[in-house]
Amino acid sequence: MISDQAVERLRTVVTWPDFSGTRYEIVREIGRGGMGSVYEAIDHELGRRVAIKIAEAASPEARLTAQLEHPGIVPIHDAGTLADGRSFYVMKLVRGETISELTLRTFLRICEPVAFAHARGVVHCDLKPSNIMAGEFGEVLVLDWGIANRRGGTEGYMAPDAVVSPAVDVFALGRILAQCGIDSRRLDAIVAMATSPDPAMRYPTAAELMDDVARFLDGRDLVAYRESALERAGRWVYRHRGLLGIIAAYIVMRVVILIAFHR
């Protein structure tokens, strides 16, 4: 019988992709999931580090993602089949970290590539914080389009929908938005609309959700929240507080001048 260490080595040997005789040299495994493993590799032809994803079955991910040329989506450089029949695709190696502190501005930047994909008929289907990364230069990237346009997802972010539509991503984005930790009735309304159990009651795509969050940041009327006249007046005053301050100062000044002249 073989030792535990030998079993571990054999596990690695059996799963380690064979790129001998190609331009790529595998350096280390950097991630593993149900849809395959991701390795850091060297592209000797171009002298750069890349990430290579190995999928057991032919996955539409490479072709789908290759159609999505957006700064928030990791570009695909190459794709092919290994000698053992597994498929692989080569993409930019993202150096950065998953987002630990989520602001509303960052949330809008997460929505951008998702809205872009929705406009091209692609639904991510597994949006969650661990699939969002902040790059070295502050760029926000949405990763892992491995189950795009297919039923799936991760508990806590997975919509209870029977069919795949952009509303599935809107639900997950709503769950992510809820983690911003901002105490506001108006923002709560956006989250509630995005995460409605009924997909027909949600924003139809990420673009509409993004627009409503942008309106929230600008203090404008929301699709998700009908407010009372008093709330609206209060928000109007707050939104125009600068102008109102100048007008109030002007009035006070005129009153002071008027009183001074009448003495």
Partner: peptide, 15 residues
């Protein structure tokens, strides 16, 4: 390296 690559590929198929 060629023999090792062949052995690994064969082992994967066997497993």
């Amino acid at each position: 390296t060629n023999r090792l690559a062949l052995a690994r590929r064969t082992l994967r198929k066997i497993v």
